[in-house]
């Protein structure tokens, strides 16, 4: 094992979900031990069916925990998350390549 500099985060969304969690903790929405116990439980559950390699599956478990955790705290409803996620997906698919992708169009069409 060498100390060659590995990228800190291998995928941009790993960094995003990490930062989101740290930011919410620092803003006082939950304390870190509470987060860690939930996250540890998810890792344990996911580790039963396959051996986690600490890469993508680690952050998948992180995201899964955060979604459930925020829902349980009434900070982000799971249905809202699914709906907004679909809106983002539609926005990406309907935005010409190279143009900035925004939710505005998707949101205004719904109203």
């Amino acid at each position: 094992m060498t100390d060659a500099p590995d990228p800190v985060f291998t995928e941009p969304w790993h960094a995003q979900v990490f930062a989101l969690t740290v930011h919410l903790n620092e803003a006082g929405h939950f304390d870190w031990p509470e987060w860690a116990s939930h996250f540890g439980a998810t890792l344990k559950k996911n580790g039963l069916s396959k051996e986690l390699d600490g890469g993508d599956d680690y952050f998948t478990a992180w995201l899964e925990t955060l979604e459930q955790f925020l829902a349980s705290k009434d900070l982000a409803d799971l249905r809202d998350v699914a709906e907004i996620k679909n809106a983002w997906e539609r926005a990406y698919l309907s935005t010409p390549h190279g143009a900035p992708v925004t939710l505005e169009q998707e949101m205004s069409e719904k109203r």
């Binding site: 969304w13 699914a82 996620k85 983002w88």
Partner: peptide, 11 residues
């Protein structure tokens, strides 16, 4: 997963 994170951020 990237879209799910974006959705959380948006909300």
């Amino acid at each position: 997963p990237a879209l799910r994170v974006k959705a959380l951020e948006t909300i």
